[in-house]
Design a protein around this nucleic acid. Structure first.
Length: 423
DNA sequence: TCTGGGGTCCTAGGACCC
DNA sequence: TCTGGGGTCCTAGGACCC
């Protein structure tokens, strides 16, 4: 059996650890630029605030019900996440960190203990030591763990935070209850296709011919129906190096000056380079994109991305900056209001296993010591304290709703590096 | 006025090879 | 007139996840 430990409305719960007064009150956490709602307390959900709601559309509602709003603080969330992972994983031999607020535990071989009691103890320990409420779903496959977790969250007082989905009878009942759109792996598009074909509950999918599922969902579909039947298709993954790194931002205000946008994308290129060096890899490919505000139908729209394959793999901020700049020159067009831009690097090789093109100049090895020295100083003295001349060192996105408790938290804690796999 | 960011995987189609 | 078959690799785009 596997167990899925999932933190309840994680970012909000993190805010509550700083300020107990927030307990039992409607609370939301906002994305960059305080743009969208990315986490909601139960009380906020009950007010009808949907996930990813644009904050400005709900200002009145927030005011009316005294909803507490916070800008996202990823330093805090990473810190709390690692606490939760440390506690939960100490109970098992094998686990997988699935996201910032979820981990799978392998309970195989635990047949002589009561799994419900064991997981209840894990849940309570996390609450006592990290002050984060979690739900735990137990089942034979990852997909069924997700189902079990949904059941826990749907009926909190009934199951006390832990639910085991084990017998065929319980599974059938659960799948006849679960909407197809809530199955792990069914997104918005697929949910519509499913409903158009008479599939409304998870159970309905199992009644469809396999060929149909294969056609509509591809190979994912076959895996999914097996997992729902309790036939294990997905193992616990061990941590693996990233395959791509992206730094993208929306700007607080739309930018029209070429030099302003250039400064942004060059800075994003630097951050990509830093993160490459942190994992000791070089990239062979760089992508730059720019786009206007897609919500402003009154303004001309423009979005363009361009990718270049590098002559030699690198993680030098200077070399990547140079490429970013060239790519930017070819896609930037005057006369538009730019709202968002980004740099993505991929196709990685380890730093010490680069294959060098004999006919191309290769400055990577000259740059590397300087770059590493820069990284070391920034680690010691703070982000962007040492930087290249093309970076302004200023953020063009805002975080307004920070609290005094948070300032205190930052002062009192040495914050760990973010280290998560995203899916 | 104001609408996030960072990931993975799969597939179809084209280029190219023998 | 008649014009194969099978494989690999790459890329863009689309789906999904948190």
């Amino acid at each position: 059996m596997y167990a899925l430990v999932d933190c309840n409305n994680f970012f909000v719960s993190c805010e509550r650890t700083l300020d107990p007064e927030l307990e039992n009150k409607p609370v939301v956490v906002l994305s960059n630029n305080d743009g969208c709602v990315v986490s909601r307390s139960k009380e906020a959900k009950d007010l009808g605030i949907p996930m990813a709601a644009p904050a400005f559309k709900y200002k009145e509602l927030f005011k009316e019900h005294d909803v507490k709003c916070f800008s996202a603080k990823f330093e805090l969330y990473n810190f709390k996440s690692q606490q939760v992972i440390r506690i939960a994983s100490s109970y098992v031999l094998e686990f997988e960190t699935y996201s910032i607020d979820e981990l799978f535990l392998n309970l195989t071989g635990f047949k002589y203990i009561n799994m419900y009691d064991y997981c209840l103890e894990i849940k309570n320990k996390i609450k006592d030591n990290a002050n984060i409420p979690v739900s735990i779903g137990i089942a034979s496959t990852k997909t069924l763990c997700k189902v079990a977790n949904r059941i826990v969250k749907e009926f909190p007082e009934k199951f006390n935070g832990v639910y085991i989905l084990d017998t065929p009878e319980k599974i059938e009942k659960a799948l006849k209850w679960l909407n197809i759109g809530d199955v792990w792996g069914i997104g918005r598009k697929l949910a519509v296709t499913m409903q158009d074909n008479g599939v409304f509950k998870a159970w309905d999918l199992l009644q469809k011919p396999e060929m149909w599922v294969r056609k509509v969902m591809g190979i994912h579909g076959i895996r999914m129906i097996n997992e729902l039947k309790g036939i294990r298709q997905l193992e616990l993954d061990s941590p693996s190096p990233k395959k791509s790194i992206a730094v993208t931002r929306s700007f607080m205000e739309m930018l029209t000056e070429k030099e302003d946008v250039r400064e942004r994308v060059e800075t994003f290129g630097m951050y990509c380079s830093e993160r490459l060096r942190k994992q000791n890899t070089c990239c062979k490919m760089v992508t730059v994109f720019v786009q206007t505000n897609r919500f402003r139908k009154d303004l001309p729209e423009y979005r363009k991305a361009i990718t270049q394959i590098l002559p030699n793999p690198t993680n030098s901020s200077i070399l990547i900056g140079r490429v970013v700049n060239e790519l930017f020159e070819t896609i930037f067009k005057e006369g538009f209001h730019y709202k968002k831009a980004g740099v993505i690097v991929n196709d990685f090789v380890p730093e010490d296993q680069r294959l060098i093109n004999l006919f191309e100049k290769d400055a990577q090895n000259q740059h590397l010591p300087v770059m590493k020295a820069m990284d070391a100083m920034n680690k010691k003295f703070g982000k962007d304290k040492v930087r290249l001349g093309s970076m302004s060192g200023e953020n063009t996105f805002g975080r307004k709703q920070l609290s005094p408790e948070y300032e205190a938290f930052l002062k009192n804690n040495i914050l760990p590096e973010a280290n998560f796999r995203f899916h």
